[in-house]
């Protein structure tokens, strides 16, 4: 069997895009000190809203806009509960995932068996969303490390009490970060329904949101690392599909475990490096997952 490396790389870019979007969004959320485990729920919400809008208007671009809004809407439930009612972030994120999966299963029925409109093509035979995803990596990196708002966001994430004492609006910064994460997750989910699978099926994100969460850890909260992680994941997915197509003597069900097993492996390797490694860098943001309650 001949595998054309360029063709494989193009497929890899496509497979990596949903994860890249979702993980970049979650990276910003986590750098602001919030752990939103609802990525899967926001992705599936975006997948359905995007597909429905693209189908209704015939325009995939409008589909992605709708998906971003759906992701933001879902993320705001999480933001209200975790920021203003100080709920446990792990439990609230989990609730968002369960709710998103249920809600889309409920409203998605009429879209089953409907075909998506054609994606908008871009340069080099890659669609525009792939390019947008790639462009977001340096943009997020630049915004986080080279701009004042980025500095404030990181300060809020590292030590929210200190940031509060300096007069930064901790909750508003986090609200913005969560909304950004929601928009990115929504668009990532819509990429799966509009550009990859080309139709809507219940629960179609199949753990992509959780893989995105793992990739943020793998990336050690660095946007370039997210790109590497998303490509690694895309590579494993494409390889697995290629092996299936080539008719390797391994059951399909076992081959399709590969992305999940690879995610666990990568998570273990990076955690081990953090635990036993010499470098102190790449640690999680200091206030990650802790609710912020200003007494004054």
């Amino acid at each position: 069997m001949m595998i054309d490396p360029i063709a494989v790389f193009v497929l890899l870019l496509g497979a990596a895009t949903p994860i890249l979007f979702a993980a970049l969004g979650e990276l910003v959320v986590e750098r602001a000190g919030v752990l939103n485990l609802g990525v899967e729920g926001m992705m599936i919400g975006g997948a359905l809203a995007g597909f429905a809008a693209a189908h209704a208007t015939g325009s995939p671009a409008l589909g992605f806009v709708a998906a971003a809004f759906a992701g933001v809407a879902l993320s705001m439930i999480f933001a209200f509960l975790s920021l203003y009612l100080l709920s446990n972030q792990v439990a609230t994120g989990l609730a968002l995932t369960l709710f998103g999966l249920g809600l889309t299963a409920m409203f998605g029925k009429p879209y089953e068996g409907v075909k998506a409109p054609a994606m908008m093509a871009g340069p080099l035979g890659l669609n525009l969303m792939i390019w947008l995803g790639l462009a977001m990596v340096p943009v997020v990196w630049w915004a986080l490390t080279r701009t004042r708002p980025g500095l404030i966001l990181r300060a809020v994430g590292e030590n929210h009490d200190a940031a509060h004492a300096l007069g930064y609006p901790v909750r508003r910064v986090r609200l913005g970060a969560i909304a950004f994460g929601g928009a990115m997750a929504g668009m990532g989910g819509a990429y799966i329904s509009i550009a990859t699978v080309l139709q809507w099926t219940e629960g179609m994100t199949a753990g992509a949101g959780w893989i995105a969460l793992a990739i943020v850890v793998f990336a050690q909260w660095n946007p370039w690392g997210v790109l590497a992680g998303a490509w690694l994941f895309g590579g494993v997915t494409v390889l697995q599909l290629r092996l299936q197509a080539a008719g390797v003597a391994v059951p399909v069900q076992l081959l399709s475990m590969a992305p999940y097993l690879a995610t666990i492996l990568v998570l273990v390797l990076i955690s081990a490096r953090q635990k036993f490694g010499r470098s102190a860098g790449g640690a999680a943001p200091g206030s990650l997952g802790r609710p912020f309650h200003a007494l004054r």
Binding site: L37, G207, S256, M257, L261, I264, S271, K275
Partner: peptide, 19 residues
């Protein structure tokens, strides 16, 4: 290794479904 039990246990759900 200090790997997050949240993510690992969740990933293993998908693996179990495939099994």
């Amino acid at each position: 290794f200090g790997a997050s039990e949240i993510l690992v246990s969740l990933m293993l759900v998908y693996v179990a479904q495939k099994i």
